Simulated scan of single mutants.
Amino acid sequence: MTGMAVVVGAGVGGLATAIGLRRAGWAVSILERRTELERYGTAFGIHPTAQAALDRLGVGEAFRGRAVPYRGARIRTPEGKVMASLPLERIERKAGRPELLISRPYLIDALMAELDAFGDVPLKFGENVSEVDALVAGHDLVVGADGIRSAVRAVRFDERSGPRHVGTVAWIGIADFESGVYGETWGKGRFFGMTPVEPGRTNWYATVPEATTAEELRGYFEDWHDPIPRVLAETDPSTWIRYEMRHLFPALPTFVNGGRVALVGDAAHAMTPNLGQGACTAILDAEALTRAVAEHGPVGLPAALRAYDSERRRSAQRVAFGSRNLHRFMTAERTRLRNSMFRMMPS
């Protein structure tokens, strides 16, 4: 082995980082605070650039085996009028492959299968990391992939950066039928989205100022166009996930510290989900970090981390900034200007 690394966090970014480091010849272990892998959640949209990163990590084939293409999505008014198209066709033309959607558990399974194939990457559950400096002392590289409340970030990075609420509540779920209508519907202070996720099922997500029960959420959308009321009516509320939307603020001045510590994914740049790029940025972080480490080797680790920070920080933070601004636009209480802007866009 060329070096010893520990990855804190076993989400998408953490597992992908462990794969990349192990492929580079490093001894890797993973510490996860939960008692099992986090399999809740619905669909991840994976952009072609992130798909290419998964290919380089050796996970692309397994990922594509469970993914579905995302095409023909529109932005609508609550009455059902099409205002614009999501740029999926343009993305596919430019990249030569479509945006793909995959259920979170299937992506986790694909990553775990690649890790298991190595046979020597221990994953320890129930590890609530607090002694970050001790980890740094005992390893050549420590990677914080431990989410928006990152313990690694709290100890080794700018303490001003932390989770910030954006004032809205998100709900997500999966309906056991194909809606046939995909994209997002934007209303006054709220929106509702639907995407494919696998045959016979529809991924949905909704954002409202606040709603604490299923009936309250249904009430926000009861007079919106079909099939939105049906999606909510025919989905078991016990399977819904509710969370308060947050992002990391202020943006970090660096993703690396001391030549031996790096952050990836939400630990580095947690963002609102409006652009659907959270999983993509985590995958791109993981691949860029481990590629730089492989190129520079353990002796050149400080240079590798600088190269990673240079490649990923500004790009990821631009996505996070764009997602936050889109959230403001989508949930605006004043819709007249927004709708007039849509009328100037191709549908």
Rank of each mutant, 00 (worst) to 15 (best):
V142G: 01
K188F: 04
V142W: 00
L123N: 03
N128A: 11
S179I: 02
L107S: 08
P105E: 08
R153F: 01
Y182A: 03
K188P: 07
V169Y: 01
R97Q: 15
R149W: 15
D140S: 08
D146L: 07
V181M: 06
L135C: 14
R153G: 01
T185Y: 02
E114M: 05
L141R: 04
H165Y: 15
D133R: 13
I174D: 06
P122G: 08
F157I: 00
F157K: 00
V181D: 08
R97W: 03
R153T: 00
A134Y: 06
G183K: 04
V142A: 03
V132C: 12
D133K: 13
V142C: 04
E114V: 13
E99P: 06
S150C: 07
V142H: 03
G187D: 14
S161G: 04
E178P: 04
D146A: 10
L111Q: 07
V152A: 01
R149N: 10
R153D: 01
I102C: 04
P122K: 12
R97S: 09
G189R: 07
F118N: 06
A170Y: 14
E131C: 01
D158S: 04
E114L: 08
D176S: 14
E114D: 13
R160A: 12
A154R: 13
D116L: 14
E159C: 04
A154L: 09
R156A: 06
S130V: 11
V152I: 12
V142S: 01
L141F: 02
D109A: 13
K188S: 14
H165G: 15
R156E: 03
G144H: 02
I108L: 13
I174L: 09
L107C: 09
G147C: 08
E131Q: 13
P98I: 10
A154Q: 10
D146N: 12
L135M: 10
T185M: 07
I108F: 02
A145G: 12
T185E: 04
G126N: 09
P98A: 11
A137N: 11
D158P: 00
P98F: 14
I102G: 02
D140H: 14
A151H: 04
P163G: 12
I102W: 05
E127A: 11
F157P: 00
R164H: 10
D109V: 05
L101R: 12
A151M: 07
A175N: 15
K124C: 08
A154D: 09
A134K: 09
G138N: 14
G144L: 03
E114W: 02
D176F: 07
I172T: 13
L101T: 04
I108A: 06
G189K: 07
I108S: 03
V143R: 09
G138H: 15
L101I: 10
V155E: 05
R97M: 15
V129Y: 02
Y182G: 01
G180H: 10
V169E: 06
L115V: 11
P98D: 08
A110D: 04
V132M: 15
I172V: 14
L111Y: 05
V155P: 00
E178S: 11
E127Q: 13
D133M: 14
A151Q: 14
R160P: 00
V129S: 03
F157A: 00
W171Y: 09
I102K: 06
V132Q: 10
S150L: 05
R97K: 14
A175H: 13
A170K: 11
G162K: 06
W186H: 09
S150W: 00
A113N: 05
L141T: 01
V142E: 01
E127W: 03
A151P: 03
